[in-house]
Design a protein around this nucleic acid. Structure first.
Length: 498
DNA sequence: ATGTTC
């Protein structure tokens, strides 16, 4: 933390959590989750964005998570709560970027043999392409989606009809944080009207629809995992409710709403920025990416509708990927079955009850964390345990399945969304050695579809996962139920068969 | 993150 920013706020220690209060501000302080080494890693941009966001119109709470860094107007790794306004920045360009986990019936030793793993990698890549712009024509065994079905995906999300059309088990919808999103007036009809209005302005809509069932690039991935449930009885009981099988094979996916979410989000940024300029409204911290709209205005309605359209695509994208991955397993290892453990987002605004009133909870690089007994889990399979939290770490340290604790109330029922970057992409390319990275994967016996593992995505480019988990645990937000250890990874990079 | 230079 530099002196320039330090003069702008006071730090109020609160056990493992800390609060930041902008000097002279009447706002309640920003809650910061993280051990001291984590807190001191926040840079100037991140803190400035946090202060801008906290003091922005209609914002009642702001939480910074241990993996926070600079983002669009608001930090990535924050929770922004407003009962009166919506903010596109704290949702971001990849609307409803999410994690999902599929538990298969296979024991870990069924996926030891290298030839079997290679066959699985090939079978998965034939169905779920990686890379920017890549859609179904790059994957011969993907599902072909006509424009009419694509429109239903955007407006209905994972409805029973859409699931049946795509060969997605209908019951997987009950394993989603949200299986569908409605428009600003809580109707699906509003989304259909909005989509028809938008259609002429969306560049290559058909190409974007054909991206259904694809990973994209960057930090997105698919990963075959060996499941290691914790030794204690509580972890074993919770794992059973979650549907996790100790010593079994699962598949973890990270992806979002692809080109369609990107174009919906950037369209909203441009349109709101033009209006702020036209009306000469000052922006919080003069940040062009911290535009907002008061609820009930045509601008807020349009944003909520576009966010829902993107979120519906992301939801069906994840479920289709899981269906296609299961199909790939069944092709290579006939008789394999699979069940969705959970699907949960880290880039979305949801209407929740905060301090006894409805508010939009924007989670940007933050994961919802409802503990056992939370009223919103009533009637779900997770009412008595809390819902699964899927926290990606890295292929070598593993990823974690966690469950929220009562202490999560302090973070507006949220935890971080992963390890967070240690090195920027440029720094990773400069400082890390490709041969060492590839050797570390070989040493850990982790295969990949890439000839060379993308160096800016190497485990060493991310923060120490155990330190990140300590932050979450010591703040009383969540505890670990199981660790997932990678057996092979699907990433966007130089393909092994090129 | 992204139709990776509308």
């Amino acid at each position: 933390m530099t002196t320039t920013t330090q003069s702008k706020y006071q730090i109020l220690p609160r056990g493992e959590a800390t609060a930041i209060l902008p000097t002279g501000s009447k706002h309640s302080p920003i809650t910061v989750i993280g051990t001291e080494p984590i807190r001191s890693s926040f840079d100037e941009l991140c803190l400035q964005q946090a202060i801008n966001s906290r003091t922005a119109p209609g914002v009642t709470n702001l939480v910074l998570n241990p993996d926070a860094h600079g983002g669009y107007g608001a930090p990535v790794g924050c929770v922004l709560v407003s009962p009166t306004h919506v903010y596109p920045g704290p949702v971001g360009v990849d609307i409803k970027c999410s994690m999902s986990l599929l538990q298969t019936s296979l024991p870990a030793d069924a996926v030891i043999d290298k030839q079997t793993r290679r066959a699985l990698i090939d079978a998965i890549c034939e169905r779920t392409p990686t890379g920017a712009g890549k859609g179904q024509r790059n994957a011969p065994k993907s599902r072909h989606v006509e424009e009419a079905l694509g429109k239903r995906v955007l407006t209905e999300g994972a409805s029973p009809g859409v699931c049946r059309e795509l060969g997605i088990p209908v019951e997987w919808a009950s394993r989603c944080e949200d299986s569908f999103h409605v428009g600003h007036d809580d109707s699906t009809g509003a989304l259909a009207l909005r989509l028809e209005k938008l259609l002429p302005h969306i560049y290559q809509f058909d190409a974007k629809i054909s991206q259904l069932g694809s990973y994209g690039g960057g930090n997105h991935f698919g990963e075959c995992e060996a499941v290691e449930v914790g030794d204690d009885q509580r972890s074993r009981d919770i794992a059973k409710t979650f549907g996790l099988i100790d010593g079994g094979i699962a598949f973890l996916s990270h992806c979002g709403s692809r080109g369609i979410g990107h174009s919906l989000a950037t369209g909203q940024f441009k349109s709101l920025q033009a209006k702020f300029e036209q009306w000469d409204i000052p922006l919080p911290g003069k940040d062009r990416e911290l535009v907002y709209a008061p609820l009930g205005t045509p601008e807020a309605n349009a944003y909520l509708d576009d966010m829902a359209l993107g979120a519906n695509f992301a939801t069906v994208n994840h479920l289709l990927i899981n269906a296609l991955v299961l199909e790939a397993f069944q092709e290579v290892l006939p008789g394999t079955t699979g069940e969705l453990v959970y699907f949960i987002s880290h880039n979305i605004a949801r209407k929740e009850i905060v301090d006894n009133r409805p508010a939009w909870v924007h989670r940007k690089g933050a994961t919802r964390a409802y503990p056992a007994g939370h009223f919103a889990l009533k009637g779900t399979p997770f009412a008595e345990t809390g819902h699964p939290i899927l926290l990606p770490g890295n292929p070598q340290a593993g990823s974690a399945v966690m469950v929220a604790e009562a202490g999560a109330e302090a973070s507006c029922y949220s935890v971080n969304h992963g390890a967070g970057r240690q090195l920027g992409r440029k720094a990773a390319k400069r400082e890390l050695d490709q041969r060492q990275v590839d050797q570390s994967f070989a040493d850990a016996d982790i295969l990949s579809n890439c000839r060379q593992y993308p160096i800016d995505e190497a485990p060493a480019a991310y923060k120490d996962f155990d330190e990140v988990l300590r932050s979450v645990k010591s703040a009383g937000l969540a505890s670990e139920v199981a660790r997932l250890k990678a057996r092979f990874v699907i990433k966007d990079g130089d393909k092994a068969d090129d």
